[in-house]
Design a protein around this nucleic acid. Structure first.
Lengths: 340, 340
DNA sequence: TTGTATGCGTTATCAC
DNA sequence: GTGATAACGCATACAA
């Protein structure tokens, strides 16, 4: 690679010491206006930008953020990356991705090593890994800056961004009931995940408020995969009296329900209303398109990035308290008013 | 963060100079067996691993690979990331993602700066950005290691991994014809992309070989988006005599065709066969599921990563010549035999 | 407001 | 085969 200009070049050409140049680079206030201007001019002419490695070595910083995840949903990850990156580029950080295996016994250790090896300045953790108490504890113990993205408020507000799934689910439940439906079923996510529990409870509680019960045979636990959606839908739809509405914990499973309904010749939404969660790519493409709930993922991710950088740079900002975002309902073709 | 052991600690504890420790770390041969063993033991006990920053600063290396893309298809990106990462972790590299705006006038400069700022050791470039002659030239000029992932052979084989779309498309065309169809239409991708041209030509050439013409009114240029697929499908299906088969340049557009067919009450595949390209998530979820072509994306990505690392480390391997992968046909529900 | 000197953890140049 | 020692490019006590 070509030789890049260094801080020494800048110092020499502008006739000051590199200490002063360093001040300008880092935006220190105690520099004379003339000097600053002179130096800045040289910097611009040379197209100088400080070497991240050297900088990091000296300041024990890397200007690298990490993204830790084990999420089958590529679209979600992609949106998160874009959200984080928009903040990163603005603040001079780069993003290093680190998929991991949540089920592996060494995954916590693995993540910590990842951070230490590359001196990652801070990490954002995506669901469902973000729910790991062990990981959070290990990071904290090693003084690693982190922010979790989750659906439940399970950490200090400085260390988390939560999407208020419960509120959004409540909106969805109200909407479904407002359509006149009373026999409603849910395919929930794995009960090992807080997010699944949260959605299930939020759904059940709101229905109860509205005077509608969710009997055990109308609750079934899925695995958040398309295949699992198919399986659960079969169990639900094979029953002698089938529900009028099925809400699936995510769009993937909802797509599975759609598939089964099609196989069984059940017309959607005439004979069965279906709702999902996520606003996955699928949701708008599938026929009929899915009524679902969209998390403001990119916004969550930017917020998370801002919080991490604030921690790294020790600039206490309002963003530390700002931690809650609310998903919103998207009504499409897969739901409709009850007949009669 | 906790203080990590340094090379000095290892040297002190094993009673040798750090130069020798360095030799062991880097697998130099000229070290006495005893010394090596002794040092290795200390390294293991301490859990020492060299600091990437310091290492990079000294050797002007970063152990960072970059991923440059501007691709609306998150799933594709995700698969690439996994492919690259599997090689990275094995070889001690990390992956830094860098989405960019292909249409921006500064995108080439932007990418070069990205690499220089962080001393990225090498980059993988995804389609369609990988088709940019300007970017490749700029990287080459700046002595930046790069490998392009593309559908056409447009660079030295050391610098590219190409998926043989033409061959795969040919298989698809033969398959469609073998079903008995003769009136076939194509919604191609933007003709500004080599990949689109390649697929269009491959499709047309194979049909011609089989004695079937592709008249102008059976060729329409789309933009590779769902919306564009819808628009093109309307134009195609509104014609007085409509084609028996529509091949869309990607699954997103094929999904659009499905949508329009549904609106117009055209039964798939009874009245119209549809095929896509990519084996996007959609392809298997949509009803009916799409016949399509799957690129071995993860394999391509691993190969690209191996090639980049080989370039960085100057170890000439067979991988340098190995550059071609072949996508394969996946037959699903959206295509069927012509009714006689 | 500006400058001097030292250190960050490694690799690399030379000597022995 | 092994070891001093100088880079690498920057940040930061400490002076002035």
């Amino acid at each position: 690679m070509d030789k890049r200009p260094t801080i020494n070049d800048v110092a020499r050409l502008s006739g000051v010491s590199k200490r002063t140049v360093s001040r300008v680079i880092n935006g220190a206030t105690n520099v004379g206006a003339n000097t600053r201007e002179k130096i800045q001019k040289v910097i611009d002419e040379l197209g100088f930008s400080p070497d991240k490695q050297a900088r990091g070595l000296a300041a024990s910083r890397s200007y690298l953020l990490g993204l830790i995840y084990d999420n089958p949903d590529a679209l979600f990850i992609d949106q998160v990356q874009r959200g984080v990156l928009s903040v990163c580029s603005e603040k001079g950080y780069e993003l290093v991705v680190h998929p991991c295996n949540y089920n592996s016994s060494t995954f916590v250790e693995n993540c910590v090593k990842f951070v230490k090896r590359s001196n990652i300045d801070g990490v954002a953790i995506l669901p469902p890994v973000s729910e790991s108490k062990e990981l959070a504890a290990a990071l904290r113990e090693n003084n690693i800056n982190y922010v979790r993205m989750a659906s439940v408020d399970l950490d200090d507000h400085a260390n988390i961004v939560v999407s208020d799934d419960r509120a959004a689910i409540s909106d969805l439940a109200r909407y479904l009931v407002s359509l006149g439906h009373r026999d409603i079923a849910i395919i929930s996510g794995p009960q090992a995940y807080y997010s699944s529990l949260e959605r299930l409870e939020g759904f059940r509680d709101t229905l109860k408020e509205l005077g509608i019960e969710l009997p055990p045979n109308r609750i079934i636990e899925g695995k958040n995969t398309y295949e699992s959606g198919i399986e659960c839908a079969r169990n639900l739809l094979i029953q002698s009296s089938r529900p009028a509405v099925i809400f699936a914990n995510n769009d993937e499973m909802a797509a599975g329900v759609l598939k089964v309904a099609h196989e069984m010749g059940i017309r959607i939404p005439e004979e069965l209303s279906i709702a999902g969660f996520d606003d996955n790519l699928l949701a708008s493409r599938v026929i009929p398109s899915l009524t679902t709930v969209k998390r403001p993922v990119t916004a969550m991710a930017s917020l998370a990035a801002k919080k991490i950088i604030a921690m790294i740079e020790h600039v206490p900002t309002n963003e530390m308290e700002d931690y809650l975002v609310k998903p919103h309902l998207i009504i499409r073709e897969s739901t409709r008013k009850a007949e009669k």
